[in-house]
Design a protein around this nucleic acid. Structure first.
Lengths: 237, 237
DNA sequence: CATACCCATATTGTATACATAAGGCCCTGC
DNA sequence: GCAGGGCCTTATGTATACAATATGGGTATG
């Protein structure tokens, strides 16, 4: 367990009043997303309990929730660990998300209220601004917000739920496999283009835009099998 | 809590040796699928604990698992209840499953081993046999096995996981909204046709076959809004 | 007669203690 | 030097006690 993660969590615990399993899951999820908790990190229940000032009961519920979101691996009689999706699963996650998010934006095109479009545009603008000032954490936050908003607005709530899950999972693997040289996975103007197509009701063009966006994102990752820093950890660990 | 369900569970508890949260979730899931547990049924933790001979800890884990599968509703400070998806959600679930299962069978076509094809054929045959002898429980079992097998065989494991979830959810709503006159939702020969197309590698035809199959299944349901026996329970409850 | 309030009861939320199993370390034997 | 086995440490699995909260019924009141 790294030092940084411990103090981060302790600080988070102190700021809030009563915290529940939901809050804890949120914090751990964010920490994973921001790579504060590297894959494979052990998450012992007692330790987390001390950090958050609650008992194992609450922690267990949080971990179970995170496991159902595929954020942590929770195996019987074993310490929960931050999940490390392999290269194959990464590709599959992207493929699944292309299918689902493509369908969602196609359904969404032309049916969004002005207020929603404005909210989407706002997130896109803030993402760009964060990128320009080099604030990667904020950039990821706004990018996530944008896609999460799409998922929430889906007229098909079931598909929306699936999309929410897939957005989280892709975000985790992006953080994991981002090429070391790259500071960010920002793709200039792609979000704005998508929003314009949604506003114009161009269903199929919006679907293609999402496909391009996700293919582009996947292409920014280093998914070469040789670099097995992650696989070693999960296989040997 | 109905009488039948209680004795069913007690019998189940007695037959097995040590039972864990997984087993309990399985049994409750089956009971829901077989309509032994009607929607809205309360599932108090202590009652379940007594029935299965375990403490609330185990029950809680089971319920949480079932909640993540959308089988039960688990809201804070409230007793868990068997979930009652509304008509709208039913349609959305079918739409989502068409999208995902269509893609899965398209990916699967032409790539299945002879052994897997034989296993699929076996389930289809057993389903037909069960239908002919009027054993609806067995028919559902084999139909579920078939689709579950498809999900497991998906080269894309992420999509397979999504499909597993959707198959379960559609099964629940089929049980719920099956027209009262209908003894079964069996659709003659459709499974066999699908398997043939998979064997022949006809991706797009297989996708269409699944679409037809699922549209046909949805058409067998009574989704008219007037009959609000379910909606009243979930809205007022 | 309808409504609002209040109390008794049932049920979940949380913490803790004990039981059980996994993992690591050292020690022994080859 | 290396492999194997047993002990010890650590962490999870399960049960239980207590606290907090919802639910339902009964009663008083407008």
């Amino acid at each position: 367990m790294s030092q940084a993660w411990h103090e981060e969590m302790q600080a988070a615990a102190q700021r809030g009043g009563r915290i529940g399993d939901r809050d804890i899951a949120d914090k751990v999820r964010r920490a994973v997303l921001m790579q504060r908790l590297p894959p494979g990190t052990k998450l012992p229940e007692v330790t987390l309990g001390e950090v958050f000032g609650v008992s194992r009961s609450v922690i267990r519920k949080s971990l179970t929730r995170l496991a159902s979101e595929h954020v942590v691996d929770q195996r019987p009689n074993q310490v929960a660990r931050v999940r490390a999706p392999g290269i194959e699963e990464t590709r599959e996650t992207f493929e699944a998300r292309r299918l689902v998010e493509g369908e969602v934006v196609a359904l969404l095109a032309g049916g969004l209220s002005a207020a929603t479009l404005e909210a989407l545009g706002g997130e896109a603008r803030e993402e760009t601004a964060a990128y320009r000032r080099g604030d990667e954490a904020a950039r990821i936050e706004h990018s996530l917000n944008l896609h999460h908003l799409l998922a929430e607005q889906s007229p098909n709530r079931v598909l929306g739920g699936l999309l929410t899950d897939l957005v989280l999972r892709t975000s985790i693997v992006v953080a994991l496999y981002k090429r070391s040289g790259l500071a960010s996975c920002y793709q200039e103007a792609q979000h704005d283009r998508l929003i314009a197509l949604l506003a114009d009701g161009e269903s199929e063009a919006a679907r293609r835009a999402i496909h391009d966006h996700l293919f582009g994102l996947e292409a920014l990752l280093d998914l070469s099998p040789r670099e097995s820093r992650i696989d070693l950890m999960s296989i040997l660990g």
